[in-house]
Design a protein around this nucleic acid. Structure first.
Lengths: 226, 226
DNA sequence: TATTTAGGTAGACTGAGTGTATAATTAATT
DNA sequence: AATTAATTATACACTCAGTCTACCTAAATA
């Protein structure tokens, strides 16, 4: 009755290869197929040359497969380089590099990422998968900005949260993707995002007090740095 | 054989009411249901208290129904107020008001809009519906910025396109939605977007020449307005 | 009033897709 | 040689989109 101990040794390699082949097929299908139609477990299995049941056996469900695809994209998209960002002593240089790294990441599988994020807007389960990863970016930005405000010590914590939130938005995939549009390469817009982020930081420093909800009818308000 | 001429008079009112009821049901279902699952023609028909065939008869397909929902949202979301924007003589005031109007629009049916835009990322047919509307916003921004640069006459057209593109991104639903997050009301972030847009405009004016692709290792680069 | 038109309905049907269950196959492990 | 786990083949229940046909009904027309 008691199950005999069993370690898969050589078999694990074959299993990993099967999983990799299925994930690659899922990625290819998301790129090739028109949108999300045409992306089915059946089509993935056919493209990966495995039985449909194997996909379910390895990933449990469609969402499970796409979650594994997310992991795969993060590994191959240079997300591991993020560790070097937090070793930089200068916060603004770290911010610039973080923007650059994420620019490359968003670009590396832009179509696939777009589809995955579209699905996250429609499926609450999958939304949590994406949100968890986004929150890691927010946490990284928070660490950078914390060190940034520690030097002059001029900003209150609530304003720090606001600044982090703006940077979080400016470094989102959606911002990169919309800004790049159909023509601009994502590498071309990295400097734009970097400059916008600097501007946002300066704005956060200026407005330690809440701006009153005035009518925006006066275009002559001072916006330059005093 | 030749069909007798037929004008629907009283019947048109009843038909309009049916369409309105179906669209309202679709909107409610997108809000209530978990994501996009649970949104089916059958569910919409049941909630609107019509036969499933009636939905197909009126809207042709699921995409057709959602396209009609887009029209309905634009009507009820205050998009008609955009006409007053372009009558403003001062471009920057017009920009501020455009941002304000879109802020209210994005907020008015935020969940529904999010689902619709998520679907647009997955379905190429529906993507064109959304893209066409977004391009109208770009066109409006372009008109404003054209008048803005006519006064000092300092910026070259290619830079105008870049400035319009940045403003297009800053006024996108995705930017508002990400910036607002779960806690901030969209009305609270309208001033942020307005200030970021001003900053982006100033950056566009400063950088008529392309910035070289340097390593972002120097955090002491001048970023203030000289 | 009789006829025509068109919106709305009912029901059946195809086709595709997800997810589950069960048993059989195969190869590595014990 | 027995066991374990991956993979497979097959069948099943269920949902959904979209199409088709026939029908009912009320308004419009002659």
């Amino acid at each position: 009755m008691s199950p005999r101990p069993y370690k898969l040794g050589q078999r694990q390699a074959a299993t990993e290869q099967t999983r990799t082949r299925i994930i690659a097929a899922a990625r290819d299908l998301l790129i090739a197929s028109d949108g999300f139609s045409g992306f089915s477990i059946d089509a993935v299995a056919r493209l990966a040359d495995v039985a449909r049941m194997t996909v379910y056996h390895q990933f449990g469900s469609k969402i499970g497969l796409l979650e594994a695809l997310c992991d795969s994209l993060a590994s191959s998209g240079g997300m591991d380089q993020l560790a070097s960002v937090f070793r930089r002593p200068e916060p603004l240089a770290a911010l610039d590099e973080l923007i650059k790294i994420f620019g490359h990441f968003w670009q590396s599988d832009r179509l696939v990422t777009r589809r995955l994020r579209g699905l996250a807007l429609l499926d609450p389960d999958f939304e949590q998968v994406i949100r968890a990863r986004d929150e890691r970016r927010r946490h990284g930005l928070s660490a950078i900005i914390q060190r940034y405000v520690e030097k002059p010590g001029q900003t209150v914590p609530s304003t720090v949260d606001e600044a982090v939130n703006v940077l979080y938005t400016l470094t989102s995939f959606e911002f990169f993707d919309t800004l790049a549009g159909p023509a601009r390469s994502l590498e071309d817009i990295v400097p734009m995002v970097q400059q916008l982020s600097r501007s946002a930081l300066h704005l956060s420093n200026e407005h330690n007090q809440k701006t009153p909800q005035t009518e925006p009818n006066d275009p002559h308000e001072r916006t330059s740095i005093g």
